[in-house]
Design a protein around this nucleic acid. Structure first.
Lengths: 148, 148
DNA sequence: AACTCTAAGTTGTATATACAACATTAGCAA
DNA sequence: TTGCTAATGTTGTATATACAACTTAGAGTT
């Protein structure tokens, strides 16, 4: 292959790659939410987990991970940190292989307190992506969820 | 208690939050590309950087970081790993504050070799998100780039 | 009941990411 | 020229992420 074809490959990937774009959006949006949530001592990744546990708990770690398409080992350590703060607790027979997660008192309080910050971040993100861009994300996410 | 309002908040965030969705898409798409690129010993995060450097090099680390909306410190360490493999090299007076990155011989070879894997991953992603979902991502990314 | 086998969760390791603090230097101003 | 300021890049620390290997406990099978 000559440099010519190389540059053609480079241009193709640069102009089409979905991964580059998703990853850019991920960094950008995550930063907006993390900045908004920082005063509360929480990151948006943790809010994600907290909401799933609040909505569907008691729920097993494995189910949470599947719902978020996240590695069980990733979730395991994220939950560890959240347990320390009392945002999440283990209900029932905790040890071993059959534990169930549910939201803790501190977690409930935290969700209530974060609503204004979340709204602000959500609005800022919608402004950044535009109505169509934001709707697009919902559309794409739904496509993934139906195939999970 | 105000469990009622709490659950309303939970449902609102669960059904609307753009960050949850972007992050889900990021994990999903990154996994598809990483799996496809694994035989080449490269991750899609590294391909992103390599393509920018190949297309626009010689380019300063700061400019690469800005283009990807990535922290300079993040880029610094990512580039370190890529320098070790010879994918990227520093041109001109490297030390100090004014270094320029360009693609190395191994980097050129790697891009050529990765094209089939990239195409496969791109196709699989488009199939997952659907034509509309994929177009949506492009649309949203363009919105971000124009406001960067 | 005993055995096997698989699913669930944890731990080790590596990369990606960001913030804060730091060192250095280029650019500008007086 | 000299000195200040802002930009540039690196390093320390914490979290997020995934893969591989491991441990343990359910679930079936016989």
């Amino acid at each position: 292959m000559k440099n010519d074809t190389l540059m053609k490959t480079v241009d193709l990937i640069a102009s089409e790659c979905i991964a580059v774009r998703i990853r850019l959006l991920n960094r950008t949006v995550t930063n907006i939410f993390d900045n908004a949530l920082r005063p509360l001592g929480m990151k948006v990744s943790q809010l994600n987990v907290l909401i799933v546990v609040a909505k569907r708990g008691p729920i097993s770690p494995g189910d949470v991970a599947r719902r978020l398409n996240m590695e069980k080992s990733t979730l395991s350590r994220n939950v560890d940190r959240m347990k320390i703060h009392g945002w999440i607790k283990v209900s029932g027979g905790q040890s071993g292989r059959k534990q169930l997660l549910e939201i803790g008192t501190a977690g409930r309080k935290l969700i209530r307190k974060s609503l204004p910050a979340w709204k602000k971040a959500q609005a800022r993100t919608e402004a950044l992506l535009g109505q169509r861009g934001a709707g697009a994300i919902h559309q794409a996410a739904n496509a993934v969820w139906t195939q999970l």
